[in-house]
């Protein structure tokens, strides 16, 4: 393995990050309305959402990647491997984030809603001023754990040819006829990428908690 090989692997880092970030962004944004529908007081809608969430979570991620890339991406509309992978992971992230948000919402006592209503706050204000800031505090640690898991799962995108870390690791191992070293380097990259996420989450959590905890 040469320096050139190392650089070749390193070029996978931005793609792994883009894949993870893109999918998490899709999930974090879509997760919120999904959570609201899941918590709807209209029973048929609620039941349908529970079923859809369970279904999406039940299938292995690689299947969603194949479904979107080979199923939709090559048949119906033209999707690049990268877009198909972001979409697949984004869908999975959305239902998982919905559940994380729900955990955050359930943790807020009914008294907070009642106080907000008694103070005549509008629906928008209740969400923006009262609920969301409290939900974020509860949802932050599991979200960070989820991002790290998502980054590791993003290696699956290599199966449809997205040239991220795992994909390039495999290329280098084939070029250099070495197995151990290239994949060790890839592994080290994943660890190095997760550390700042974990650190950021802990720091943010500590800062937010310090204000509201005894």
């Amino acid at each position: 393995m040469t320096w050139g090989h190392l650089v070749h692997i390193a070029y996978g880092i931005p793609l792994t990050l883009a894949l993870t970030g893109g999918a998490f962004f899709v999930g974090a944004v879509l997760g919120f309305p999904i959570m609201l529908l899941r918590e709807s007081s209209f029973m048929p809608l609620k039941v349908a959402m529970i079923a859809i969430i369970a279904f999406i979570r039940a299938l292995p991620p690689i299947l969603w990647v194949f479904l979107l890339y080979f199923g939709i991406g090559t048949g119906l509309i033209n999707l690049s491997p990268f877009v198909a992978a972001v979409a697949a992971f984004g869908i999975i992230a959305a239902v998982n984030m919905a559940e994380i948000y729900r955990g955050g919402m359930v943790s807020i006592s009914a008294g907070q809603w009642e106080a907000a209503h008694a103070l005549n706050l509008s629906r928008l204000s209740i969400w923006r001023d009262v609920m969301a800031p409290q939900m974020v505090r509860v949802a932050l640690p599991p979200s960070a754990t989820y991002v790290i898991g998502l980054m590791k799962d993003s290696a699956i995108a290599s199966t449809i040819g997205v040239a991220e870390l795992a994909y390039r690791g495999k290329q280098v191992s084939q070029m250099s006829f070495e197995g151990l070293l290239p994949f060790t380097v890839v592994g080290a990259c994943y660890i190095a990428l997760s550390l700042p996420v974990a650190w950021l989450s802990r720091t943010a959590e500590r800062k937010l908690r310090a204000k509201v905890a005894r």
Partner: peptide, 9 residues
């Protein structure tokens, strides 16, 4: 309210 229900954040 009995349980105050201030906004903790």
């Amino acid at each position: 309210f009995q349980s105050f229900n201030l906004f903790p954040h």
